[in-house]
Computed example of a mutant assay.
Amino acid sequence: MPIIVQRNTLLPMAQTVQIRTHSFTADNGVDGGGSDAGPSPHDLYDAALASCKALTLTWYASRKGLPLTSVRVECERDASEERHGVYKLTTRLHLVGDLTDAQRHELLAVAEKCPIHKLMSSVKTEITTLLAPA
């Protein structure tokens, strides 16, 4: 099922994003000509990484019986060199639960192997853009 993005004509740049049964707004910030009515494409890219790490850690801890009761992932970007081919993301894991140091380091290693982390860092993405018939 495709992801569908269509302009919200009530705002200067806002787009409605439809993913399966989920719908939300994406927009540029005011400095980018938008209304900041939703996350920007860069925000969504960064959020994909953070949410994948959180979901992966929650799944892994449950599967392994680790006492992880909550996880919060903070993701910060440094896009200052993006035009030169370097886009830096730093994620910080806040792990809650009666975890040993060894378990915390095990979870750190798991977070670094989440599917989106691997996709962003080790997979060549090929993008094809086509025109739909008029």
Rank of each mutant, 00 (worst) to 15 (best):
L11G: 04
C75D: 11
R7T: 11
S23G: 04
H84D: 09
L108Q: 15
T91F: 00
I3W: 08
T69M: 02
V17R: 00
L95G: 08
H84W: 09
S80L: 04
R77W: 04
T58E: 07
K124Y: 15
V5M: 15
G38F: 01
L68D: 00
K124H: 12
C75R: 10
G34M: 02
E81T: 14
P12R: 06
V30E: 14
S121L: 12
T69R: 02
G29M: 11
D98N: 09
K88M: 03
M120K: 11
T25R: 01
A132R: 10
W59H: 14
E112N: 09
V30C: 11
D27N: 09
M1K: 02
A102F: 05
D43Y: 12
L131A: 12
L66I: 01
A14W: 01
H94R: 15
D36R: 08
V110F: 08
Q103G: 13
T69C: 00
R104E: 04
L107G: 00
L130M: 03
A37D: 05
D46K: 06
T25M: 02
H84T: 13
I19H: 07
N8G: 02
T90L: 01
R63Q: 14
Q6H: 08
A50Q: 06
S51A: 15
N28A: 13
T21L: 10
D78P: 05
V123N: 11
S62N: 13
K88T: 05
D36H: 06
G97N: 01
L93G: 05
D98K: 06
T91H: 01
H94G: 11
E112A: 08
S40M: 13
I127E: 02
G33A: 06
C52L: 02
L89I: 07
E106T: 13
I116F: 08
S121V: 14
S122W: 08
C114I: 10
I116K: 15
R104M: 02
K88Q: 03
P115T: 09
R92I: 11
T125G: 09
G97H: 01
L119S: 06
G32I: 12
T25P: 00
W59Y: 15
D43F: 15
P2E: 05
E74S: 12
S23H: 08
